[in-house]
């Protein structure tokens, strides 16, 4: 199966790839330092990294002789933005509703 055809569930359905994402959630890492955390061959690690890259979960940057992997956080940031906006939206609207109810002639 070509790696590009994996859907998001297949991509993170693999325990090694989930572990890679979690390792990268704290900081960028080189492929070599990522590989130190796994009991598998370097080409096998590279294959997983490529799958994560193709799915848009990470970016890869060459620095000198090392390849650095970084978690793509855009999706998370976007999510936080929505949550924050609507949390404030409802809090202010409900405050307004309270004022209306309190001033309602009975």
């Amino acid at each position: 199966m070509p790696t590009s055809s994996l859907d998001v569930f297949q991509v993170i359905g693999d325990p090694s790839r989930r572990k890679m994402l979690m390792l990268l959630s704290t900081d960028s890492m080189t492929i070599n330092s990522l590989a130190d955390n796994f009991d598998m061959s370097r080409p096998a690690v590279s294959k997983h990294v490529k799958i994560l890259y193709n799915a848009g979960f990470i970016s890869i940057e060459d620095v000198g002789r090392e390849r650095y992997c970084t978690l793509q956080k855009d999706g998370f940031d976007e999510l936080q933005k929505w949550l924050q906006y609507f949390d404030q939206f409802w809090a202010s609207r409900l405050k307004k509703l309270e004022t209306l109810l309190n001033n309602k002639p009975n």
Binding site: S25, G75, F76, E78, L79, F86, W90, L94
Partner: peptide, 18 residues
């Protein structure tokens, strides 16, 4: 009040994984 369903599925999935 609950407003649910935020986030595209894949983002939420990773978010939860994290």
């Amino acid at each position: 009040l609950e407003q649910s369903g935020f986030g595209k599925l894949e983002h939420v999935t990773i978010y939860n994984a994290m």
